[in-house]
Design a binder for these strands. Structure first.
Length: 471
DNA sequence: CTGGGGATGGGGCCC
DNA sequence: GGGGCCCCATCCCCA
């Protein structure tokens, strides 16, 4: 018994010694790592100071160069005009009250209708919109200054009243656009610009990039709206547009070629790229693909060939989840255009001229019968998806679509075939399925006479076999 | 051929 | 009666 006690005592002593040794070893490692870490921090701080100083110097130099180059460019090339109504704000002479919402205009969309509403101003007096419309057609980069033609709806900076000068100054004006940039880098540039509240030549050069370098699927979208609060904000915003009427005044549109319309302004608090509730200062990450919207506008469709959009090869830049989201949005938008054309062919009115459809979309001018319809439709353009699935976090533009989606989780298939035991979650799927039993094939290929049960099958067939598109 | 989802229009209900 | 809001049916596309 006594031997047992001694044995346990010895074991305890040994364990204590081992534990102490381990602790000492751990402390030594921690101390070593801490020293290294501290050294790295110190070096990083030094680097930060140096970079900050360089940044300041560059900023001062660019300001100086801007002034001289602006005078020089305007003197040498009177055709160069720059539209920059809100430069005072963008340059930091004012303040931004919200985040930025941006749209990319389609390739080939080289004109913008005078009455094309592309932006929103809540009229609060503090909301700001920044429209940048650039024409780079031909050898001349045609831009237009807003000085002297300021839109009262887009007021001067409420604090300073400043209307900034066009950002034409540059250190390297002719070489900036030549460098290929990925969509990611474009976004980063814009983010930096917005962060600094300053636009220089390099920023404009980014906007002048050809669209082939701007793939829609890589546009980082921060389109999700999660909360009712945000939805109300955005809805209020869109409704205010209707209360205000079309805000886009004649004569302020700009001709555009290589593509870019950029609209910045207030966005709902949730429009952060990460899809979470935010403060609205997403710093330019929330690009929205806008290229589709003008296609459906009968007044501008002729100028905006859709193929120029579809033919673009996607960039390989990985943008994470919002990347695919953007691609989906773009595809759906194109589908919407196809649908619009199909509806027009069926004789369905799509213009906003009729009395029944007197509520036009602020993006594409398509008419709807009531403001709610427009609000829903405009989500095509804005990417807003207020309805979230609790099971899988998918988001939808309409409550009904969410409800339909939830059958995926519940397994509910309320539509049963009377001919067989098949069940479907959607009525349309049952309807389509019934054609299997009836043999109905109403869609006939005009080239080979082959018949199909669905229009989409015919279209695919003609694409594959005849290399044509049905209209 | 099935299944999931985007988008539009119709219609009912309420104020 | 008209407008706002909501639900639903439907068409369409794509994987």
């Amino acid at each position: 018994m006594a031997n047992g006690v001694v044995f346990h005592t010895q074991i305890a002593s040994i364990m204590e010694v081992l534990a102490n040794a381990a602790v000492a070893e751990i402390c030594k490692l921690v101390d070593d790592d801490y020293a290294v870490f501290r050294l790295e921090i110190t070096q990083s701080q030094k680097e930060n100071r140096v970079l900050r100083r360089k940044l300041l110097e560059l900023k001062v130099a660019r300001e100086r160069a801007e002034r001289t180059m602006r005078e020089r460019v305007l003197a040498c090339r009177p055709s160069i005009k720059i539209l920059d109504r809100y430069r005072g704000i963008a340059r930091g002479e004012g303040h931004l009250t919200g985040g930025h919402r941006s749209f990319v205009k389609p390739a080939g969309h080289n004109t913008l209708r005078d009455d094309q509403p592309i932006t929103v101003d809540e009229g609060s007096g503090t909301s700001t919109q920044h429209i940048i419309v650039i024409e780079s057609a031909g050898p001349g980069v045609k831009q237009e200054t807003s000085e002297g033609e300021e839109n009262p709806l887009y007021s001067r900076d409420p604090q300073t009243g400043a209307v900034g000068a066009p950002p034409v100054a540059t250190d390297k004006p002719t070489t900036a656009p030549a460098q290929p940039k990925t969509q990611c880098s474009i976004t980063e540039d814009l983010t930096k610009c917005q962060t600094q509240r300053e636009w220089g030549w390099g920023d404009w050069a980014v906007l002048l990039l050809p669209l082939q370098q701007m793939d829609p699927s890589n546009m980082p979208l921060g389109l999700e709206a999660q909360t009712d609060l945000s939805r109300r904000d955005w809805n209020r915003c869109s409704r205010s547009v209707y209360s205000e009427g079309c805000l886009y005044e004649a004569g302020e549109g700009m001709a555009i070629d290589d593509v870019t319309v950029k609209v910045e302004g207030d966005i709902p608090p949730t429009w952060n790229a990460d899809g979470h509730l935010g403060d609205g200062h997403s710093q330019g990450r929330d690009f929205l693909d806008y290229r589709e919207s003008l296609e459906t506008n009968p007044n501008v469709a002729a100028h905006y060939p859709l193929h120029t959009l579809k033919d673009r090869d996607p960039l390989s830049t990985s943008m994470g989840p919002s990347d695919s989201h953007g691609s989906i949005l773009f595809n759906q938008v194109l589908n919407s255009d196809d649908r619009t054309r199909a509806q027009a062919q069926r004789g369905e009115a799509t213009s906003g001229n009729s009395k029944d459809k007197r509520f036009p979309c602020m993006f594409c001018n398509k008419g709807f019968s009531c403001p709610q319809k427009v609000e829903i439709h405009q989500r095509v353009h804005t990417g807003e998806r207020p309805y979230s699935c609790a099971q899988c976090h998918m988001r939808f533009t309409q409550a009904g679509n969410l409800k339909r989606h939830q059958r995926v989780h519940t397994g509910e298939k309320p539509y049963s075939c009377t001919q067989c035991h098949m069940c479907f979650a959607q009525a349309g799927h049952l309807k389509m399925h019934l054609k299997v039993h009836t043999g109905e094939r109403p869609f006939t290929c005009t080239h080979c006479g082959k018949r199909f049960s669905e229009r989409s099958y015919l279209r695919i067939h003609q694409q594959k076999k005849h290399s044509t598109l049905i209209t």
